[in-house]
């Protein structure tokens, strides 16, 4: 047993205090304000708030097909991006863990590069690749594979490509971490007991990788749900996502209460995604 040294209460306060104060001041307080704000309303024709509490903002989101459509698009786009990331990251992570050898560190570094580059520059680079006169369409045309340009920009396809590019590392990292803790002997033992490769995956590898799969999926899903720069640049204003709606209301229309309500709805879906992840882990993680 590790002996934990005695820490006096005032030492604890000094250790935790600065960060806690910062978090309270710049996160908790504004968040509470955001929550209250979402139940206020804008006085028509002015920037004044009507502080009478109302659920009108929420009624507007769930009653208007424009906003509901944006919500629905964002949800299934995030789901699609999560599934694509999972399918791409699984073999890549397994290859890095099992076969990369000395190049492992370098490969992990390369695969997390999109995370440290920020969203804007890689996305602008993608514009060059995906646009009607861009590299991909040009190459396919000169190879004679297509006659006219494929629409890769200003639609869901482009946004999905951009989001996968940006958030693939969020899937790779948890998968690598989980796979590294999985001794090879589990698979070998299962095979010696009569399990074919597919059965080994079903009954041994996937259940044991579940925490990593859930963590990676949650990260990618939540990041996609709240992504703003990538859908904005690659969607070219033609793809309506929830984050861009909130941006419009907050920065262009200046209806802060309604923008707050949009933000709260987004947060509720983030919370639901987290609960679903916890539920999946609890249900399938322990018992087989």
């Amino acid at each position: 047993m590790n002996q934990i040294p005695d820490i006096k209460p005032h030492t604890t306060a000094m250790l935790v205090g600065p960060a806690a104060a910062l978090m309270f001041g710049v996160f908790v307080l504004p968040f509470l304000f955001l929550l209250v704000l979402s139940f206020w309303s804008q006085v028509p024709g002015s920037l004044q708030f009507d502080t009478y509490l109302t659920v009108l903002n929420y009624a507007r989101i769930f009653g208007d097909s424009y906003y509901l459509g944006g919500l629905w698009t964002t949800l299934w786009l995030s789901g699609l991006v999560t599934v694509i990331c999972l399918l791409l990251a699984m073999p890549l992570a397994r290859w890095i863990v099992l076969r990369a050898g000395p190049a492992k560190g370098l490969l992990i570094g390369l695969s997390i590069l999109p995370l440290v580059c920020g969203a804007l520059l890689p996305t602008l680079g993608l514009v060059n690749l995906l646009s009607p006169l861009g590299f991909i369409n040009g190459a396919l045309k000169s190879l004679g594979l297509i006659q006219s340009s494929l629409p890769l920009l200003g639609n869901i396809t482009g946004v999905a490509i951009g989001l996968v590019q940006a958030f693939l590392p969020l899937m790779i990292l948890p998968l690598i971490t989980t796979m590294e803790r999985l001794p090879q002997e589990y698979e070998k033992a299962a095979m010696s007991l009569g399990a074919r490769r597919l059965v080994v995956w079903q009954r041994i590898i996937l259940p044991l990788l579940l925490p990593g799969i859930v963590a990676g999926s949650l990260l990618v899903f939540c990041a996609s749900l709240t992504a703003f720069v990538t859908p904005q640049v690659l969607g070219q204003g033609k793809v309506v996502t929830f984050a861009s709606l909130a941006y419009q209301q907050a920065a262009l229309v200046l209806d802060w209460p309604f923008a707050s309500a949009l933000a709260i709805v987004m947060l509720i879906f983030l919370g639901l995604a987290g609960m679903l992840g916890a539920l999946v882990t609890r249900k399938f993680g322990k018992a087989s």
Binding site: P183, E185, K188, S192, G194, R196, P207
Partner: peptide, 21 residues
């Protein structure tokens, strides 16, 4: 013959018991 068709029991040094079962 692939391992799953050999019917040969194998006990590893680190036991390799399936932790989720």
């Amino acid at each position: 013959l692939p391992p799953w068709r050999r019917n040969i029991g194998l006990v590893f040094q680190n036991y390799a018991l399936f932790p989720h079962l």
